[in-house]
Nucleic acid binder design. Structure first.
Lengths: 144, 144
DNA sequence: CTACTTGCAAAATATTTGCGTTATT
DNA sequence: AATAACGCAAATATTTTGCAAGTAG
């Protein structure tokens, strides 16, 4: 029985090299709370490395994600968004302005489902996204 | 103070017309559990309406979503996925095969956070996605 | 009739990839 | 030296849109 993906992980793993491009991308992502897109990261990194290419940004985002150094958000929209904070925290997305905000991490403590004991699905991770209105937009809403 | 999006919703709302294309798309989506992509829906509807265009599928998926008749999944992947079941249920995505499964709806009863009272975010909806292994893939995993 | 919707094709976005070169180990 | 990673440009998706013609209300 062939199990290609698993085998690929086991046999000869690639030796990852450290490059200034990868480091710059990771630094940009760790230093923002803005859940940026690949294009935004590209613009930001270009201030430091003007000749970096968008392809390199995408390649490194994929590498970094595979290594678990960054995570990718499950957000409906035009393009993917990434997060330098890989800790277990949740996101709120404002239905009006589209802003993605962090939901306080203490909330995570209440998540203890034991679902894996009750369903036929073994959970390794869960991602929770709240939809609603952020503080500023709620103010606008009530004024109308 | 201008609040464009809200105004747009209030002033002259468009009268939606019933078309066979829209009905076919909705029917396909209501009759599958597969959380399909726009392209899959297109192929499926074309069996019945061979001349429908992909643009029409996309246009109607957006309309139906705006009306709340279907929902869109927050899934990391190549393209968007839709769901004809708009009830509050959760999804599990298999890390190995990519399959999206439904998590039993009874689980929903346990979600009573009261987060909106504790945070500065007014929640209208939440979406929860579990990541892990589905039954079949877990069997493969343990055999290795 | 009016104006929403369609099919088609072209455009706009977003992401990946081939290739010859550069840089890291 | 070997090979991972780069920059660039071309190739792939994926999704949106302009427009003339069709159709529901």
């Amino acid at each position: 029985m062939k199990t290609l993906t698993a085998d690929a992980n086991k046999t000869h793993r690639k030796i990852l090299k450290k490059t200034k491009q990868k480091e710059a991308i990771l630094r940009v992502l760790k230093n923002t709370m803005s859940h940026p897109t690949a294009a935004w990261i590209y613009d930001e990194v270009r201030k430091e490395l003007p000749h970096i290419s968008l392809g390199t940004v995408y390649r490194n985002l994929r590498l970094l994600r595979a290594q678990g150094e960054i995570s990718e958000l499950e957000i409906i929209g035009d393009c993917r968004r990434f997060d330098g904070d890989t800790s277990n925290h949740y996101h709120g997305r404002c239905d009006r302005c589209g802003q993605v905000v962090n939901i306080d991490e203490s909330m995570s403590k209440r998540l203890d489902w034991g679902i894996s004991r009750e369903t036929d699905f073994t959970i390794s991770e869960y991602r929770l996204e709240f939809h609603g209105l952020c503080r500023d937009c709620r103010k606008l809403e009530t004024k109308e």
